[in-house]
Simulated assay, not measured.
Amino acid sequence: MHQKFLILFVSFAIISCSTGASYQKPENAKATKQWGVVEVKETVKSMSHSLSVYYKTEMKTGFLEWRKLQNSTSEHIDTKLITNEILNQLTKDKIPFVDTSVREDATKEMAFGKTGMVSSDSRLAVGKFKSPSHQIKGEINEVVNFESGTKIQYITVTLFLVSLETNQIVWSEQTNFLKKSRVEGYGF
């Protein structure tokens, strides 16, 4: 009796201590009702490949800069996640980027370096900033319809590459999703 109680107690402790979480490879993710891994991975894959090919075949030089990706959907979408993943992939493909948001801090550091309080071997050199020749910007949009308890959602992710010199859109790409999901409690 004591042994059965001990086995039951240990089993209960193991089950109650488990987190209920598990990991899987993002490539094996399945579609969900909300924006998720499937949409992020497909967007990153198509956008980064298309832009990398365009840069290497058409532009060949210049620095790119990101502008915030706008989410105009009813869903919470972490646009920074998408941006970071595309940026990461493009950087691996040797596409050059600049981050102009650090200019103010760098300028202060350069000015401090001129005071003589910074050793010459680690002082930041003046005149080495790179300017972006193009900016990447984009939007996520949707159209939602409801039919017989089914939510039909058409989502588009569009990126644009804009020349800062001419303001001309020189590249664009779009990834589309058509999602259908059952709406619980629809049509009482």
Rank of each mutant, 00 (worst) to 15 (best):
138 G>H: 06
119 S>H: 12
112 F>H: 06
135 Q>N: 14
160 F>T: 02
148 S>I: 11
123 R>H: 00
136 I>C: 09
148 S>G: 11
110 M>Y: 02
150 T>G: 11
141 N>W: 13
129 F>I: 03
147 E>W: 04
175 T>Q: 04
110 M>L: 01
177 F>V: 00
115 T>M: 04
156 T>P: 03
101 S>C: 06
171 W>T: 09
149 G>Y: 13
123 R>D: 03
77 I>L: 10
161 L>E: 03
177 F>M: 01
119 S>V: 11
150 T>R: 14
144 V>R: 07
166 T>G: 05
141 N>V: 14
135 Q>E: 15
104 E>M: 15
112 F>T: 04
177 F>L: 00
92 K>H: 13
150 T>M: 14
83 T>A: 07
181 S>H: 06
150 T>C: 09
118 V>L: 02
87 L>A: 14
78 D>R: 09
76 H>V: 14
169 I>M: 03
113 G>A: 07
164 L>P: 06
119 S>M: 12
111 A>D: 00
79 T>F: 12
109 E>M: 15
166 T>D: 08
101 S>K: 08
151 K>C: 00
146 F>M: 05
157 V>C: 08
70 Q>L: 15
134 H>R: 05
115 T>D: 04
132 P>G: 04
130 K>S: 01
142 E>M: 10
150 T>L: 14
88 N>D: 11
106 A>T: 10
162 V>F: 12
123 R>E: 01
181 S>V: 02
80 K>Y: 12
139 E>S: 11
156 T>S: 09
76 H>G: 12
180 K>R: 13
179 K>F: 12
73 T>S: 05
170 V>F: 09
164 L>V: 09
145 N>F: 09
103 R>D: 15
93 D>H: 08
129 F>R: 02
177 F>P: 00
112 F>P: 01
77 I>S: 03
123 R>V: 01
85 E>C: 13
108 K>F: 15
92 K>P: 05
170 V>E: 06
87 L>W: 14
123 R>S: 02
122 S>P: 04
113 G>Q: 02
180 K>C: 10
83 T>D: 05
132 P>V: 04
69 L>M: 06
172 S>E: 06
129 F>E: 12
116 G>K: 08
119 S>P: 06
157 V>D: 05
125 A>I: 08
146 F>N: 05
170 V>A: 07
156 T>W: 11
121 D>V: 07
82 I>D: 10
139 E>Y: 10
149 G>P: 10
127 G>P: 06
177 F>C: 00
116 G>H: 11
163 S>R: 14
142 E>C: 09
134 H>G: 03
178 L>C: 07
88 N>T: 14
180 K>D: 06
81 L>W: 10
95 I>K: 02
91 T>G: 10
163 S>V: 12
167 N>G: 05
121 D>L: 01
112 F>S: 01
182 R>M: 12
